[in-house]
């Protein structure tokens, strides 16, 4: 059975008395013709690759080929050593991990697309930072990633997760929704709370454009990962307090899709509008073509 909507997912959790991660692993095992254990090891492989990307990213200051970015994670680590972040260690870790992963992506390091390469820092930074700070078991981290995955999958049935189709709301926005869901699962939220966290995260990034400078997954993408990782935590905290989105999740996803359709093509990965057409972006474009030779 394919779960095509969040209403169906919620009904299934109630009917079968299963958590979202349990449903995710069962469905996946059926679909891939694997055992549940194999699905969990596959999930763990991704988790391990996410941790490695963070660790590699934290160490490196290697710049991207454009020479625009690459040392921000190290800058943050150094600053936090001298001066704690206002919001504490967890915030430090989440933001640094998000940037570290996104920078690793940019320097052609090994990352896990989640859901895309441009948004690869959001889910790992939230789930891994929180599990380190709260001593969350490996099993619960796998559950969280499975939940995040199923949430992203159901969204992807309605909207293709690509900036070219629906803007950055469908990449970093959906990543934040997945992270919010995974985090809520990890903190023992109910299925209702997980779906509320997803809805709250998505609702608050509607309309986010995709306007990468020179068409590269670099500006504004890298820093955006840190912003939307924190966004995911906000959504989860609200949901865990029992706050509900007035607009149900399925309708929010429909809105995301329609908003994507309403968005000008100039703002959907074509780099013909937005930040990509600023004076500075145009200058950067010129300097880049010199670099290309």
């Amino acid at each position: 059975m394919t779960l095509l909507s969040f209403d169906e997912l919620l009904a299934t959790t109630i009917e079968k008395n299963l958590s979202i991660s349990e449903i995710a692993q069962q469905e996946e095992a059926l679909f891939l013709e694997l055992s549940v254990g194999d699905v969990r090891s596959k999930t763990q492989e991704n988790l391990i690759a996410m941790r490695e990307a963070i660790q590699n990213g934290l160490k490196s200051t290697e710049k991207s080929v454009t020479n625009w970015c690459g040392d921000d994670a190290v800058k943050m680590t150094q600053r936090y050593k001298k001066q704690k972040a206002l919001l504490g260690t967890l915030f430090e870790k989440i933001t640094t991990y998000a940037i570290a992963t996104a920078e690793e992506n940019l320097r052609m390091g090994r990352i896990v697309a989640c859901p895309t390469a441009g948004s690869c820092g959001i889910v790992p930074s939230v789930l891994i930072a929180v599990s380190e700070e709260r001593n969350i078991s490996e099993d619960k981290q796998i559950d969280a990633l499975l939940t995040a995955g199923l949430i992203g999958l159901i969204i992807s049935y309605k909207v293709r997760l690509a900036g070219a189709v629906a803007g950055c709301q469908a990449e970093c926005g959906v990543a934040a929704a997945m992270a919010a869901a995974g985090l809520t699962q990890m903190l023992d939220g109910t299925p209702q709370e997980i779906l509320q966290a997803t809805a709250l995260a998505l609702k608050n990034i509607l309309g986010l454009t995709c306007d990468p400078v020179c068409g590269l997954v670099e500006v504004p993408c890298i820093k955006r990962n840190a912003f939307l990782a924190v966004h995911a935590v906000t959504a989860s905290e609200l949901a865990l307090s029992g706050i509900e989105s007035k607009i149900p999740l399925d309708e929010v996803v429909d809105t995301l899709k329609i908003t994507g359709q309403l968005m000008s093509p100039l703002l959907k990965e074509t780099s013909q509008g937005g930040l990509a057409k600023t004076k500075t972006a145009i200058e950067l474009e010129k300097s880049l073509s010199k670099l290309k030779g």
Partner: peptide
């Protein structure tokens, strides 16, 4: 129907899936 690993994955070198 698609696999959940179409959303989480591939493990790849960056920076762009396409």
């Amino acid at each position: 129907q698609q696999s959940l690993f179409s959303v989480i994955s591939p493990i790849m070198v960056g920076p762009s899936s396409s």
